[in-house]
Design a protein around this nucleic acid. Sequence first.
DNA 1: TGCTGCGCACATG
DNA 2: CATGTGCGCAGCA
Length: 537
Amino acid sequence: MSEIKYKNQILAAIDHLRSRKSRPDINRICKFMLKCYKVGPKDTKADLKRCLKERSIFKVDYKDNVSYRNAAKWRKKSTQSNTMASEIDERKIISSAIATLIYRDQSYLENGIAFDDLIREAAFLSRYTKKQLETIVNKELSSGSLVKLPNGTLALGPAGDPDGDSSDSFKFEYNDSNTKLTSSANSSCRSSPQRMRGRPKKNSNVASSNSQNNISNQNSGVRVGERRKMAKKVFDPSDNNVPSKRKRGRPVGSLNKSTIKKRMMIASHQKNEKEGTPLSESQHSLDGSGEDMESEEPISHEASGGVCSVCHIQKPRGSNDRIVECRDCNNKAHLSCLQTGSGILKPRPDNTWQCPHCKTCVVCYETNDAGILTVCNICSDAYHALCHTPRIPERLKAWDQWECNNCLESHPNIVGSPAIILSNVDYNSESSTVDPFLKPHELDRAPTKLAEDVPFNPSIPDVSNWTTEDVYSYFLEHLPEAAPILKDQEFDGQAICTARRADIVRGLGLPLGPALALYRIVVKLQTRKDDWTMCWG
DNA sequence: TGCTGCGCACATG
DNA sequence: CATGTGCGCAGCA
């Protein structure tokens, strides 16, 4: 359209400089144009002038210096119109924000989208302020284009989806096979692998700012793609290490994404061949408290390669001293240290390992922030006491000896007690009689292994043919707070029968307590046995 | 040596 | 107070 030959390039230059937080002044723009497009300063300046005239670029004076702005992206403070076009624009922004979020993290499909996440994403995609976006979202809510789910999150409403996507896609989904959170290498502790980006446009992490849980890892400097917020520092005169003047810029020792990525790759390659070779400086020690480096000076950064997070030393190489790396972060430890350590340290049977900070309950996917995790001696799966079926006794003493129900089930002779001791299982042996790879979350389904001797209770209704209304009235009576939620999620009898623990505990957005209470009732209805109270205490 | 990424101080509305 | 901007620094190629 435009006759301005280098308009796009100049715009790209401005965008580029802005993204680097560099002032897009004439010198930098010219430099960029020359380097990237081989366009001389003369041509650049000439075209820039034309762009200014055309108002596709604005010239601004900021902090006593001249800057240039990409008009398309620059929000002038007084833009507020109520035209049809802007409404369509608003709606598009919201729907593309939703689409982006879901694309990034499919669990939004299941759980809805948190208001804040939506606002944040929409802010990235548009030139609206958060305040404006909040108004827009509220408008969409009242118009029905957006609906509020029972758990407080948002989804596209049944009315109008401008992009033509069925609103069904935003409904609660029972089938979580696609949304199951699996932590793989490179994923952070609590975020799904899909949750790749969070910072706008590149690699940020929108992760619903689960701050407490992130904190422990933020200090590691490992988490790619998330801007680390520095703790506010209070000047303490007694602290000799505090520089008199706070320095700007990247903190010493922090690395950029590419470097981290590279190092992680190198580390993972080395992992299999070598032991104890210098590894990433970004590794952090097990205590994860952020003060990990404070303990011993030189070990900390550069020299920390291959340092075991458990024993803090770099043992001589040997087959038993193989270093394993946490599959979710960069923590490392000697295999031998892990195998002799406490339950939560234990590696998985396949010698993969999650450090205590990344270890998640296989049922609710929460870390030990959400409660003490107990680790199965056989399969190394971790459970919260209440998440495991039956509930893990609180005073279980021999934590290392505890075996999850799933592993117990694979021993037909030893059914029932959760504290069966099988401490001498050969973790490295594939021929173990126990199938260590059998995991509860792979069998994530309605519990069918209730104590067989518990009598069938005919007073518990058969819900299999219930309508959503029936379910609603039943829960209205038995757990009123859950009734509207189940109704909204269109839980009928079949849904109750097939609901899995994760659906209830995780999928409805209820706090853990009510969720478990609800699950207890659901189980009762599923089994028509009411002995479950014992299991839940 | 120049480029990149980004924390954070500061400007602006 | 929220948001935008870009200085100045460390790290990287």
